[in-house]
Design a protein around this nucleic acid. Structure first.
Lengths: 319, 319
DNA sequence: TTACACCATAGATAATCATCTATGACTATA
DNA sequence: TATAGTCATAGATGATTATCTATGGTGTAA
């Protein structure tokens, strides 16, 4: 058999001829003329190298080889069809895979979106990458993920970003901290305290540093710890104060409390970030749609909804 | 996906690209130029309606959809390949089906050929049709079988026939028949006996009738029984004499014996008969080859071998 | 026997395909 | 920063394909 010349079209036509038992009938059903179908059959026979049908009592019936070929056709066509359905489902976003890169702090809130999404879309695989801001920037540069969450989107013409959730940075101290009930507490008052800070690549650290710089304050004593969780525990055990996302604290507030420092919380917002030129996997698109629809209930953050809607719109026209 | 435009050739090329991870490499392996392969990929992408590969570090890697397409390709190609192998096997005659129509008496000897053949070719299905000469002639006229065994091939230009085994017709009587030891026994002496005969459509009957006619003898008393076996039993129980194929008697000689009648046994031979215009299924061809090779051992009938060899030769050039 | 239904073949044509060579863009490596 | 390797695109061309209309053969049914 000359496999290379075999076409699915030929198999379709052939299968229909076997089903109807008539060349004319197939021609009508497929909106072709009778000679066209005759010739397709002839070509298929040449490809197979063997007679595949014969005339029998005004019916066209497959030969023994034709029978086997018919079964093959059915098989192949239905497999192609399954693939076609998979494609549709993939394009609808109900199936497939995407990866999302999260800056550390975002890991405290994203599960509240990803969880329900995965439940609603069990056929979608999501890979979640987590790292500090710098690590995520590197991944972003290397195009490693489909979607990112940053508090400060990278400055790049090629990015599209939509804020979706506020990320207030607060100062926390140990439970029953002596600063807890001070009125008009200022950073000036705290500058002698030891501050437990994330590593320089971190967004929280960066934001705080920028704020300190603009306020003209220099801290006396700092210690670097590369994990929000470790910082929280260290604060709870009295090692010092820290600046953390309020979401980190809200998630497991044991042993720490927010201090009512003036100028705090520092405002920042998480953004969904995608590359303009990257074709977003449909599943990721679907995730964003899902997020847009559930932001209101999940976080009571209606402005975010709008921004995400705009992002979706932009992505849609992009296609 | 535009299934109708899908070609196995495209899948072959695509699968190779995925395997090698290089368009150039595939081009070399398939004896094409690089742009050709590039364009095949492009066309496949258009058929699928979705990017299927992307460049990654000087390698071509499939996208998510491409992965699925690759698996599909493998699957479809290997199925086509299995079919191709089936075809080869079919053409070699080692697989498939054929039907053979036997005249009644031949059923006593054909198993000795069909049995070993089936053992040697377990994938070949044989349908054996049995009937008297007239019934077989009808089947022959209607092209119902691939191969026939007649003692007298139908007079038809379109037939090819090869004798392969002698079929002596003998007169039998009951065991200890008073005729058994008579010297120079002639039919004249037996004309008062009751003869048990097959029905007029039967070949044995026909041959015997013709012989009687040419000898100018008319039987006094006959009885018609439509089965060799029943005739044999009737003879054994003393109902009369009969003319039967010696093979029938040899097969189960209980209660009957051959009578030494002058002019007997009547000579006749079985022939394999095929229609000239009919494309013989390869399995049937293989059966004939097999027969040719085993006639000598099975029956000690070397002339038959030659005739069958000629038939095979004729069939071969026919193709 | 005639009429009809069904199929095959011939001949024509526009579209598509498979393929090539030439060239340009991009990327990693010497 | 050359250089080589890898792809993509453009343009050309002969082959193949899909499709039609017209016509003729064959078998079935009225």
């Amino acid at each position: 058999m000359k496999v290379r010349q075999l076409t699915f079209r030929l198999l379709q036509v052939y299968a229909d001829v076997v089903r109807t038992g008539s060349i004319t009938a197939t021609a009508n059903r497929l909106h072709l003329t009778q000679p066209t179908v005759s010739q397709q059959l002839k070509r298929l026979r040449e490809i197979v190298g063997e007679p595949i049908v014969r005339q029998e009592d005004s019916r066209v019936v497959p030969t023994e080889v034709g029978q086997a070929l018919y079964q093959l056709s059915q098989d192949l066509l239905s497999r192609a069809d399954v693939f076609s359905q998979y494609l549709d489902e993939y394009n609808r976003g109900g199936r497939g895979h995407f990866s999302i890169g999260l800056v550390n702090t975002a890991q405290y809130v994203l599960p509240r979106l990803l969880g329900p999404f995965s439940q609603a879309n069990p056929q979608v695989d999501v890979t979640v990458e987590i790292g500090n801001r710098q690590q995520m920037l590197n991944r972003f540069e290397r195009h490693e993920d489909d979607l990112y969450v940053f508090s400060h989107p990278p400055a790049d013409d090629a990015v599209m970003a939509a804020p979706f959730l506020s990320n207030p940075l607060v100062v926390v101290g140990p439970e029953n901290s002596r600063w807890a009930n001070v009125n008009d507490l200022t950073m000036e008052a705290l500058k002698e305290e030891r501050f437990l800070l994330r590593e320089p690549g971190s967004a929280t650290r960066h934001t705080f540093d920028a704020w300190l710089y603009s306020a003209g304050i220099e801290l006396r004593s700092t210690q670097q710890i590369a994990s929000n969780e470790a910082i929280r525990l260290a604060v709870a055990s009295g090692m010092g104060l820290a600046v953390l996302s309020r979401h980190v604290v809200a998630d497991s507030p044991k042993g720490v409390q927010e201090l009512p420092l003036q100028g705090f919380p520092l405002k920042s917002r998480w953004h969904f970030v995608v590359r303009r030129e990257r074709r977003l996997p449909p599943a990721a698109y679907r995730f964003l749609s899902f997020v847009q629809g559930s932001l209101a209930q999940a976080f009571d953050e209606p402005e975010g909804e709008l921004a995400v809607a705009e992002l979706l719109q932009a992505l849609k026209t992009e296609r």
